[in-house]
């Protein structure tokens, strides 16, 4: 918002936060990927393609995982504010 350039300390904090934030996103993506693979994909590996049932399961799984992320985020955030 302000045009004032950030100080060295502020810069370090911005870089530190950005790094943690990216690590968080990578970890979220990896957990989501492994979880939905476990829930949706047949493990006997009769073929190397995903079939239609698996594909639609994956889409719904990602969507529901996203909603759970938001729901838990609200619960964690509401600790500071009045419920």
């Amino acid at each position: 918002m302000a045009a004032k350039p950030p100080s060295t300390m502020e810069k370090e904090q911005i870089f530190g936060m950005a790094e943690k934030e990216m690590e968080y996103r990578v970890e979220l993506f990896n957990k989501l990927t492994h979880t939905c693979f476990n829930k949706c994909v047949e493990k006997r590996y009769k073929e190397s393609e995903l079939n239609m049932g698996e594909n639609s399961c994956i889409d719904r799984c990602v969507s529901k995982y996203w909603q759970v992320t938001n729901l838990v985020g609200q619960l964690l955030g509401s600790g500071q504010q009045p419920m």
Binding site: K20, E21, E23, Y24, E27, L28, K31, T35, K64, Y65, V68, T69, V72, G73, L76
Partner: peptide
């Protein structure tokens, strides 16, 4: 942030 991620994974 890790706790947040693992809580989501567990409850999901």
């Amino acid at each position: 942030l890790r706790m947040y991620n693992s809580l989501v994974e567990r409850c999901f």
